[in-house]
Each structure stands twice: as structure tokens, then as C-alpha cells.
Design a protein around this nucleic acid. Structure first.
Lengths: 199, 199
DNA sequence: ATTGTTTTTGAATGGTCGCTCATGTATTTT
DNA sequence: AAAATACATGAGCGACCATTCAAAAACAAT
């Protein structure tokens, strides 16, 4: 009996290519990034790209969204996803957001927010990833607020679930404002006022 | 002496063309709209389009932003820009926003929010229009909140300027959330919680 | 009717888009 | 060495992009 023969091995790392794609989509948006851009940025020729990522540009985009959710988002959330997170972690998340929006590298905002605006209306799969992200944010913020109530960090009468929904919307809004007007005084005022309502 | 001779008159209304362009950019975004789309939608041939709007597609886009600010925004703001506006008008604006996001025609969100995300980073002129819009929103919300304090509709200790900044961010966030997840229960919960903080 | 001026027309421009495919190459088995 | 397999290469596909332009047409004054 014959065993399958070993083919020529890949000369590039698909994950590295996907990472480049993610970064490009993140900073320029889906439509603004061409496959040729990716070919130039990775050195991987079109044929190899398409055989490594069946479905072409859009598949690469959807995989970029997933990669972003899996690698970038947890880093931004930090300890906010820990089961003992409370008010400090929520505040830390917002402060990190503001810091990012004011730094030269962070002005691209959030890939998932950008996707909500650019693609959600015309791409259900992309919209679903965004919805998943929003639900995840809401979930861990609700949990953190519940801990905060328990520890007396916020008023006991706080509607944790509702406040979490508002905080999620607030951080999306923060990113829209920050993208058009990266003004630290303004952004910090927004965050301060959002948290003043919780105490 | 000779007077200038009369040329052939225009057969289309530039404002009507601009209106079509605005609507397209609004619902699909700048990159997603091609000049050919506009030619088909208006019946105005490329040559005429380019001679009526020097600067081509981008000029048409910038003029669309201005038209949106001048015609659509005041309609959405309604009485919020009146000098005697107070809490009810702020609430009315948010309720209108939610109503729009839930209606089939309003799912496109706000052209200026979409522009903040899609174009602000790479187009300073577009970003400036967006910043102007945000400042306008903040100004009339601050004014309305001051009236609300005077009338005892909100607590006297309210930081009107700060709360207005937060409300502006909140309505941007509302549009991001609504675009990915047009869920009336969720959107209304966000608005309710935003206003609970003012009382 | 002729002339001067501006508009309309739509074919054509050169470029870029996402994507495919024939050909050559590297690797491991027989 | 030869065969089998998957990969790398990059020229090339048709479609579409924003934009231009030469020619024809419409108007008012002469």
C-alpha cells in the first residue's frame, strides 16, 4: 500500500499574513485596502494568497475580525474580563481607550467599531462579529459593575445591566469623537462625566 | 459696445444632483459610491457632472457633507436648537435617533458619524466638517441643559458643559450600536440610562 | 442665417480592482 | 533518478474606477 507523498512546504506563515491584513484593515478600512496592498506588504504573491485564504479579500477580512477579537480585544480589555473585576477595571478600560486615541498608533480606533459603520449594513457576517463583541463588552461590564455595587464603589441603587449598556455605547461614541477630534481634554471630560453618573 | 451673448442653459438642477449624491454617500459611504452610480442615478452624464462640480467625486462629497449639515441636521435637531429648548428637546432628539435607527429608511445612521469613521483619518476637510457638527451638537445640548437646570428639570448640581459632552458621545455611540444591532429594547435602555443620570 | 458661448454627450483614457491559471519549483517518497 | 504532490510565481483576465475630451447641440444676439 502507498502512503501520501510529502508536498512542497509553505514558505510563509499564514498567521503572519493574516496579521498584516488585520493591521491594514484596522487602519484603513475594508474598501480602502486592496489585495495588491497586501501582496506588497507581505511579499506573498496573489496566487499563494488566494490558495492560503480561499474566499479572497472578504475571507481575509472576516478572519481579520476574528483575529482581532481573539488577540487585540483581550489585550485592550485587560483585567476587565477577570471575574473579580470591578470599578477600577472599567475605568482602566476607558482610560486606555483615551490613551490609545491620543497616541499616533492608536488613532485607527477599534476595528470592530469601524466595521460596524463601514460594513455592518451590507455584510451580515461582519455585523455578527461586531454584535458578538458588543455583547462581550456588555457582559463583562455588567459583571464588573455588580462587583462594584457589592464592594460599595458605586451607589447600591445602580442598574448594573442598564448602566453597562450605556457604558458600551459611551465607549463606541468616545471612539467616534476621538477619531474626528483627538482632543485629550474633551475625551477625558466625557469619561469623567460617564463615571460621575455611577457614584 | 457689445454685451455678452447668452449661452445654452443647464438642463439639470445642480442641487438635485447634489441631493442624490448626498443620499448615496449617506447610505453607502464615500468609497462604495462610484461616479457611474451617480451618473445612472441622476441621468447627468460624466462630462456635465464634472463641469458642474469641479473637483470631481471628492468635491461632490464635501458639498454633500455641507448640504447634510445645512438641511438634514436641522431637521433632526428640531427644536433642540431653539433658544428655549430644555430637557424635553434633548430627550426628543434621542428618541428621534432611536426611531430612525429602527426604521428601514434610517438604518444608514448619520452621514457625519459615518464620515468620522470612514474618512476623518485621511481627509482633513471632511474631518473639519465633522468637528463642526460635534461642536454644534455640544453647544445646543449645553444650552438646553442650562435651561433644564433653571427650570428644575434636572438636579441643580449638574455640570451642563460636561454632561453635554457626554451626551454627544452617547448619541454617536448609539448610532454605532444601532448600526450593528438595531434592537429597540437595547437602544431605548441606553437612552433611558443616559437620562437617568441627569435627574 | 450666422456667430459666440456654454452645455450635453458618450466614447475613450489610463489606471486599479479582485482574482485566476499555466508554468516552474521544492520536497519526499519509491 | 524518477514520480507524486503541493506550493510559488507573476502575467494576465475582464470589470470597474475616476476622469477627460472632442464633437454635436442649444440658446440669444446679431
Amino acid at each position: 500500500m502507498y502512503f501520501s507523498l510529502m508536498p512542497r512546504p509553505r514558505e510563509f506563515e499564514p498567521d503572519a499574513v493574516l496579521n498584516v491584513a488585520m493591521l491594514r484593515f484596522w487602519e484603513r478600512g475594508y474598501r480602502a485596502v486592496s489585495v495588491e496592498d497586501l501582496v506588497k506588504a507581505t511579499g506573498v504573491k496573489p496566487g499563494s494568497l488566494y490558495s492560503a485564504f480561499p474566499g479572497g479579500k472578504r475571507a481575509l477580512f472576516l478572519k481579520s475580525l476574528e483575529r482581532y477579537s481573539r488577540l487585540v480585544v483581550p489585550e485592550k480589555l485587560g483585567e476587565l474580563e477577570a471575574s473579580d473585576a470591578s470599578l477600577a477595571e472599567v475605568r482602566g478600560y476607558f482610560d486606555g481607550l483615551v490613551r490609545d486615541l491620543l497616541s499616533p498608533e492608536g488613532r485607527q480606533g477599534c476595528l470592530l467599531v469601524n466595521t460596524a459603520i463601514e460594513n455592518a449594513a451590507e455584510d451580515d457576517e461582519a455585523a455578527a462579529v461586531v454584535r458578538g463583541h458588543l455583547a462581550r463588552l456588555e457582559r463583562c461590564m455588567t459583571h464588573a459593575l455588580e462587583n462594584a455595587v457589592r464592594r460599595g464603589q458605586v451607589r447600591a441603587s445602580l442598574d448594573c445591566a442598564g448602566s453597562a449598556k450605556l457604558l458600551v455605547a459611551t465607549c463606541q461614541g468616545l471612539m467616534v469623537v476621538g477619531k474626528a477630534n483627538p482632543d485629550g481634554v474633551l475625551l477625558r471630560a466625557i469619561v469623567d462625566n460617564a463615571f460621575a453618573a455611577l457614584a
